[in-house]
Computed example of a mutant assay.
Amino acid sequence: MVDICWEQLHRSAIEVRQNAYAPYSHFLVGAAGLVDDGRIVVGCNIENASYGLTLCAECGLVSHLIATGGGRLLAVVCVDSQDNYLAPCGRCRQVLLEHGGKELQVMTPTGPLPMAELLPWSFGPQDLRRVGGLNTNP
């Protein structure tokens, strides 16, 4: 089991947040995640003039995870422009669940919580397998 250094994740999220592209909202977000092999993956938000195409920092983090060999997320930290912890939005909770499961620890403004508490009654790969006949390998 890899130890979670929340301070290191916080620093990594702050560092990557400096690369965020948010010319419309000016709401800069950085995210850092600890992978089960000890790596730290990061992401920042990327806005788009067509707001629906904006990419959240957590999506960038998951893209970095997959692009660098995959693995399982153990812990995630998201920060705003004041270095405050942010809880992921609902869409990002679902994305993080896919790559960390219900045990994934997410830092919130009140402390770390497992994804099972942040996204109760979640829908995941196990639900697709339960339907039957679907070939899923996550």
Rank of each mutant, 00 (worst) to 15 (best):
M1Y: 03
M1K: 06
V2Y: 04
D3P: 06
I4K: 05
E7N: 14
E7K: 14
Q8G: 00
Q8V: 00
Q8A: 03
L9P: 12
H10T: 13
S12C: 06
R17S: 00
R17A: 02
Q18H: 13
N19V: 07
Y21P: 02
P23K: 15
H26N: 14
L28F: 15
V29P: 00
A31I: 08
A32C: 13
A32K: 13
G33I: 01
V35A: 05
V35E: 04
V35I: 08
D36S: 15
G38W: 12
G43K: 11
E47D: 15
E47F: 07
N48I: 07
Y51S: 13
G52F: 03
L53W: 07
L53Q: 09
L55D: 06
C56W: 01
C56P: 03
C56E: 12
C59N: 15
G60Y: 00
G60C: 07
L65W: 10
I66D: 10
A67C: 11
T68Y: 11
G71I: 06
R72G: 02
L73G: 03
L73C: 02
L74Y: 02
L74D: 03
L74C: 09
A75G: 00
V76S: 04
V79I: 00
D80T: 08
S81W: 13
S81V: 09
D83E: 15
A87R: 13
A87M: 14
A87D: 15
A87G: 10
P88I: 12
L97Y: 08
H99M: 07
G101A: 01
K102V: 11
Q105C: 02
T108V: 09
T110I: 10
A116P: 04
E117Y: 10
E117R: 15
L118Q: 12
L118I: 08
L119E: 03
P120V: 05
S122E: 10
G124E: 04
R129S: 06
R130D: 01
R130P: 03
V131M: 00
G133M: 03
L134C: 12
